[in-house]
Design a protein around this nucleic acid. Structure first.
Lengths: 341, 341
DNA sequence: TTGTAAGCGTTATCAC
DNA sequence: GTGATAACGCTTACAA
């Protein structure tokens, strides 16, 4: 198979100069219709396709955005990515999707590569928003936006108010009359976990409920398996002290807890009410549809992409912390006789 | 912020020539330890990072693979992508992930872009493996591997045997004593659906069961919502003709059907047994853990990546159709008193 | 061991 | 309206 044709080949084939071919692609209005058509025909015949690397080299920057997600096994992040992709498309950019899987070292490796690619901007849900390698990217002049976490001010960020999310989840449970509630989630090294927990505690205190009634059930990760394990520990608590409701730090935990509880013969929500967080599609699809604190997943991604693009192109860009308001979506896992879906 | 430093800057700063800097990066053994160290210090001081576009331009090809998935909302494809990513990493390549969302036009747009990027290879779960734009890529000399679908022979492909998958699913149900089984899935424009259905019919005939006993419940898509809708239609069938088991063309359908059925008060599997396909993580996490035909998702991706890399680098490469054997994972949705998980 | 120079494909700035 | 030419940053012969 012959080398793929370049502008030079097209120029030769059309009997024009190289610059004219470039003009046909980039400023067609400046070239006469006749030659333009001739060039276009040549391009079609040869099967010419622009070489993006050459373009990038010339332009100094790629036509690419990147998203480094925190956990590829959580659909939440893919929904965020989907939102980013839509915005990227509108700007005619490609999107690199990477997955740190919660590991700082993987994250650093990905970022390294992205800098080499000279991506126009980096969107990231970081393992640790304070990490040095993030600041490093920023110092390089590459726009960077923190997603689903509030940045330190050194970067733009897009997130929902996790404290508020924790508040509305627990407030909802309190409204249903629960006085013993477990907050399920961990590790606390994850900022989202800390803040959702904090919100839960705040509202509990404000409602004047017995501090003993709110317990924290720590988990090692935000996974379905950990949710199941939390369910087992919950079942081990003596009945008169056992929480009648659980607020899980994300939907995966909630789904695991739901499964374990149903398997153990509990009725949801009569014996145990459950609230998740994120409102991934599978939350609504559960056997007992899951009440969840909704994050506008795609919107989060889209907004983040717009911020990064603004930073990339607007010289007067100022960093901003975008905060979305989370919303409680009540379903059957907390409200008896709720419509199934 | 100053322009990001180039090899030239490093060379100047280290007091060596440009070629030497390049040697430090690409054949360090050929340069003396002293100068090497000097160059490395200069690189660190300036914060030098290779420009990947320039490298690519020179090399003629990028260090990038691409995966075009069929449905971003189905975790199955993300698991495949994860397998690809692992293999890509081993080969020190980056991975572009695109999503056609089942639309041929989006697929074509993505492929266009990937050709412009001069990706080393394309992995794709195509809307239609016979589509002209696929052949086009191949003609360009870009290695291409069909994932989760058997290619026409013009390409490599990696898939499980979907016909066999359909067979083992329905055979399992027959073994449980079911004589009225619904096969849920569509549209039939999707090859996977056709073949799984075909397998179901084959084994049904071979087992000598009443042909009337196997019905096809078509759906408009392979989604949770369509699964629910199928459940409603199922419920509408008069009890003495109503299937006692359902084989769904994928897990999303099965999850939707499961949810709807439980909501309608059916006991699973006593009133309705359900088998899915893919064995995504959420299948095991369902309230009634879902029996499913397991595809080795990561393995599929990994194998596909290896094929594409072989095609990219091995001049004596020959196209091959890799076929994995699907495996039934029996859980509580078909087997009463099955361990919960 | 190190330096020099050509070239990858594109775009933009000039003359013509 | 069109053509020649330099430049982007890197790699790799080949020369010193």
């Amino acid at each position: 198979m012959a080398r793929t044709p370049s502008v030079k080949d097209v120029a030769a084939s059309a009997g024009v100069s190289l610059g004219t071919v470039s003009n046909v692609m980039n400023r067609p209005e400046v070239v006469s219709p006749a030659t333009r058509e001739r060039v276009e025909r040549a391009m079609a015949e040869l099967g010419f396709v622009r070489n993006e690397s050459a373009r990038q080299l010339r332009a100094g920057t790629s036509r690419t955005l990147a998203y480094v997600m925190l956990d590829g096994s959580n659909p939440f992040f893919h929904d965020v990515a989907q939102g980013i992709e839509l915005a990227a498309e509108d700007a005619d950019l490609s999107l690199f999707i990477c997955n740190s899987n919660g590991r700082a070292d993987r994250e650093a490796v990905h970022l390294d590569r992205l800098v080499q690619q000279r991506v126009q901007g980096v969107l990231i849900t970081p393992v640790d928003p304070e990490a040095a390698h993030l600041a490093e990217i920023g110092r390089r002049g590459i726009p960077i936006v923190i997603v689903d976490r509030v940045g330190a001010g050194a970067f733009c960020s897009v997130a929902v108010d996790d404290v508020l999310g924790g508040r509305i989840a627990v407030e909802h449970l309190a409204e249903q009359g629960h006085t013993r509630v477990a907050v399920v989630g961990g590790p606390e090294s994850i900022g989202q976990v800390r803040e959702r927990l904090q919100g839960a505690r705040e509202i509990w205190a404000e409602l004047g409920l017995d501090p003993e009634g709110l317990t924290h059930l720590p988990t090692a990760a935000l996974t379905v398996a950990e949710g199941r394990s939390a369910g087992e520990r919950l079942a081990g608590i003596p009945a008169r002290r056992r929480p009648t409701a659980a607020f899980c730090a994300n939907d995966l935990l909630a789904l695991g807890l739901l499964q374990q509880s149903i398997g153990a013969g509990l009725r949801i929500p009569q014996d145990l009410a459950i609230v998740g967080f994120d409102d991934i599609d599978f939350a609504a699809a559960a056997a007992v549809p899951l009440t969840s604190v909704r994050q506008p997943r795609q919107e989060l991604g889209r907004a983040a992409a717009q911020l990064v693009l603004d930073e990339a192109s607007n010289p007067r860009h100022e960093h901003q912390q975008l905060s979305f308001v989370p919303e409680l979506v009540a379903r059957a896992s907390t409200v008896a006789r709720h419509r199934a879906y």
